[in-house]
């Protein structure tokens, strides 16, 4: 049985009818059409589906859509501001931190969470903070560089 939930995504309030066995990632991608959130493994291993849920980055494939009722979510589409790209997005572009791009949305959101919690993270904290996001293309170093360049 579908049930109506209320959820705020990227400052927009939605009412969505979701099934009990629907995951948050599927709701975001297929019901809200926000396809920047990717589905890489469905089992919480790769981090491509990372979203920020009430201020905390999580694997949205491990959350049921109904559990998002009444909560606030930021997806990759909500990272840029009115003035354009977020500094992290700019840094990812400039430092060559993007290759196939499939991990990039999740990676940007995890990196953003690191910086939101600590504007001047150490390299170890950056590595730790993006360690839930697998990337097979870059070997991570240019991503770490990008995050470092935005940190103070």
């Amino acid at each position: 049985m579908k049930k109506l939930i209320r959820v705020t995504v990227n400052d927009v309030r939605y009412e969505v009818a979701v099934k009990p066995n629907q995951t948050l990632v599927d709701m975001i991608r297929y019901d809200l059409g926000l396809t920047g959130t990717k589905n890489g493994c469905g089992e919480g291993d790769c981090g491509a589906c990372t979203v920020i849920l009430d201020g905390t980055p999580v694997n949205s494939c491990l959350v049921l859509a109904m559990q998002a009722d009444g909560r606030t979510i930021t997806t990759i589409e909500g990272v840029e501001g009115e003035k354009g790209l977020h500094p992290l997005q700019k840094a990812f572009i400039e430092k060559g931190a993007v290759q196939c791009g499939f991990c990039t949305p999740g990676m940007v959101l995890s990196a953003k969470s690191v910086l939101d919690e600590n504007p001047a993270p150490s390299e170890e904290e950056i590595r730790e903070g993006i360690s839930g996001n697998l990337c097979r293309c870059t070997g991570y170093l240019q991503i770490i560089d990008a995050v470092k360049s935005v940190g103070k």
Binding site: L34, T75, I76, E77, L85, I93, G96, V98, G101
Partner: peptide, 21 residues
Amino acid sequence: TRAVRVDASDKVRGLALYVDD
């Protein structure tokens, strides 16, 4: 040179479309 990738901005914004999108 170190030119910026032509696809990077779509990719960091989550706008790049993969087949399942």
